[in-house]
Design a protein around this nucleic acid. Structure first.
Lengths: 327, 327
DNA sequence: CTGAAAGCGCTAACAT
DNA sequence: ATGTTAGCGCTTTCAG
């Protein structure tokens, strides 16, 4: 194993260029600090020669910004998250910042991240995990740029929420067109706020369209959980039945369950997914689903990240509309 | 918007506890530095009271370690990556380190990450992206702990490779059992080293088992790319045909393509995937696939991350076996 | 065991 | 425009 290479410092650059440290700092700052152009060229040349890269730890010690953005998630293993985090990392990098993933499995982990020194020094935090309440965000992060993306929000904070009602209304209306008069609801975690809001929306519109809710099942968004649940179910009459699922993975399970036992559910196209993942329209599956533009979502996040001050409450809470994708 | 809260420093803790900064540092170091136990208690109490959390940027400036581990990827949007990165982040957190995702879309981005200051200061780098050659790793990272996970390796470096031959041999043998005498190969990017190795392995064992390679198609691992490619294909005789795919997503496309045009391929179970994702055995799909234990893979990575010195070359290059999952 | 002091690499205020 | 200097928060000598 090679020995650790000596990392060139600003001092090394300054010496090689025959100038002072501060001159070198100014030349390399990128912020158009006063410096003679010939000197600047010499310094840049020296930096290049040494392979100099500024030490962000030293920089952050001086400046208030650290260049780190925390992304706090429960887990990134959901189907719908596939492309989202990929784009999000790219968006953060486009801001010249770094994405720091914080994974929260349970409430116990919150105590752990309280001890995580990086967490407190990030320039901004994007909260996807529903384990974090808006009120406790200030105790976790030493920044005001905490953006709630988990459906929760505090008046004083920032948030981007998904307007799920729009898509849900259209999905239920579609079911109504397909002569659904009774439906089962396959949901995710009971403890999730967004999930409870979703259920409420479904019930509200089901009432509007005279669809009976015959069963609400709490799974965990996964294919397996939904499939296991369904396997124990028997329905005497499926002629007017519909199945609403709060994830595409669970809708896939519903389709597969129906394939053998109740193929008419598939033919009648009364299984509804959520998230608009590619799977909803791959040949093996084909079900209508609810979704929103990830690009728009990320754009909103960037908007909040970039803005320095927020005069109006309205501009601190953005929202993205959902759309219904009928297949 | 609230004003930025003043962050408590070690000095604040020391003052509150009525001790010196160095005493406070020792008490909080966790490394059993000499300190009177009553004093230590007072300091811990003061720190708790103030909600003190050490500034990692100041710490790293003094120490050589930064607590950051880079994960360098092309993109995390592949199906097979779903759970891997989730577990990996957790593993890195269990080491008390932070995962820093670096996303590389093209070779142009390498120049960009050369300018990314954090990249150079990580304690270790996990290279999944095949855009990075083992030789250039030392110019990108100021650490020797660069672990190549992209199938490439330099003698002097560290690596964990996947032994794909094992699974491929079994897959081809299985095809042979199913009377396959000619096969098409749906592959990923032509430029990928691992991909070329895979193709070589497939061809080697196809020769062993007297299976003709009638067509090698380069897609990009995705469902769409494979489906689009297949849609333009017509096969006069599929009675002894088999399809090997180097991703489960492409195998899904092969199944969906066959559904309408050549259902016998599905019945004969001669479509083979790669990665052992959950999709390979969800009701809508059911195809044999090649995979390896992600847990074992991560364990190997941790082994390399933890070890300080490596006497033998052998211990610097670890490998994980693949398994064939017949459905 | 304890505290004073040096210094990690950098930037900004200040004086020239 | 340039260099000198102070200091960000921390850990680690080094004396006592």
């Amino acid at each position: 194993m090679r020995t650790k290479p000596a990392v060139p410092t600003l001092d090394d650059v300054a010496k090689l260029a025959g100038v002072s440290k501060s001159a070198a700092s100014r030349a390399l700052s990128g912020k158009n600090r006063p410096i003679a152009s010939d000197k600047k060229a010499r310094i840049l040349q020296a930096a290049e020669e040494l392979g100099y890269v500024a030490n962000p730890f030293a920089q952050s010690l001086r400046e208030s910004s650290t260049g780190l953005v925390a992304i706090v998630v429960n887990h990134i293993a959901d189907l719908s998250d596939l492309t989202l985090f990929d784009s999000l990392i790219q968006a953060i990098q486009s801001l010249g910042k770094q994405a720091l993933f914080i994974r929260l499995r349970s409430e116990d982990d919150i105590a752990e991240i309280k001890r995580n020194p990086f967490v407190h020094r990030v320039d901004a935090a994007l909260i996807f995990s529903d384990l974090i309440e808006p009120e406790e965000a200030p105790t976790l992060f030493f920044t005001d740029k905490v953006i709630m993306l988990n459906g929760k929000k505090a008046d004083t904070g920032l948030s981007v929420t998904i307007n799920e009602e729009l898509g849900i209304e259209k999905a239920v209306a579609c079911a109504n067109h397909h002569h659904v008069t009774k439906a089962i609801l396959l949901c995710g975690r009971k403890t999730s706020v967004t999930e409870r809001q979703r259920i409420e929306s479904y019930h509200k519109f089901m009432e509007c369209f005279n669809i009976d809710s015959i069963h609400v099942a709490f799974c965990d968004y996964s294919y397996e959980s939904a499939f296991n649940h369904l396997q124990n179910q028997t329905y005497s009459d499926t002629s007017n039945l519909g199945i609403f699922c709060t994830s595409d993975a669970m809708a896939m399970a519903a389709v597969d369950f129906s394939r053998s036992k109740y193929p008419e559910l598939i033919q009648r196209k009364v299984i509804y997914g959520f998230d608009n993942t590619p799977f909803s329209q791959m040949g093996g599956y084909c079900f209508s689903t609810i979704g929103y533009s990830k690009d728009e979502f990320i754009e909103m996040i960037l908007k909040l990240l970039n803005k320095k001050t927020f005069k109006q409450t309205r501009s601190r809470h953005l929202s993205v509309d959902t759309e219904f994708y009928e297949r």
